[in-house]
Design a protein around this nucleic acid. Structure first.
Lengths: 109, 109
DNA sequence: TACATTTGCAACCGATTGGTTACACAAACT
DNA sequence: AGTTTGTGTAACCAATCGGTTGCAAATGTA
């Protein structure tokens, strides 16, 4: 089952989990304790995050320490970035428009 | 029904639609013609993109011209950006590590 | 007026999603 | 040795998703 970063971060719980793990790595139960849902549900979310490389796990005895690996978010950043120019241009022309009508207003006053 | 930008861009077809509309605005049938799926399916995707503000529509007679409004991607950019420092730090320490073992290697040669 | 085009909406469908409970099992304490 | 702790897996469930077909309605055009 091929996992996709965009799909992984679509769920707000998974985004929150990534936030927690970025602050400090911790085992699965510790993560699950922070949410109202069951351990199994969180475990499934973690599995998805692992499958797309946003989280890595390190076995330590019976515990599995999960760590955030947000480099994979680069793919998302790149995709968004291609629209940056697009919306900056629109904002620029809006600014020019606003500047123009402000000047006009000043002329009329 | 509250739509969320993260959920909207999770689907590859919707990301592609946004790409098409960023190149040039066009009506719903024109978009649908670019995909192997039915018009209704594309129409549903467009509805989701509209509901979260990534696409705006302008009625023109019987046609509805769809236009990309990628400003809403700022929310995604902001979320990703908060992890930038995190992964830059990791890359930095990797670089330092690589530099270190390279020096060691040079010493040994 | 008759016809073609563009679109929305309702009903349906199979697959996926996010969740649950129940059970199993190895690692670590007492 | 017995018990607690951390985790995986299987079976199930309701809701959502991405897709379909069929029909209706409004706007253009011949």
């Amino acid at each position: 089952m091929r996992r996709d970063v965009f799909q992984a971060i679509a769920d707000p719980t998974r985004r929150e989990i990534l936030g927690l793990l970025a602050q400090n790595p911790q085992n699965i139960n510790a993560v699950a304790d922070r949410f109202p849902t069951s351990r199994v549900a969180i475990s499934k979310h973690l599995k998805i995050l692992m499958e797309c490389g946003l989280v890595v796990v390190q076995q330590q005895g019976r515990e599995r320490i999960c760590e955030a690996q947000p480099e994979k978010l680069q793919e998302v950043a790149d995709w968004v970035e291609q629209y940056r120019q697009f919306w900056n241009e629109k904002l620029d022309s809006l600014e020019q428009y606003l500047a123009k009508i402000q000047n006009k207003d000043a002329d009329n006053s």
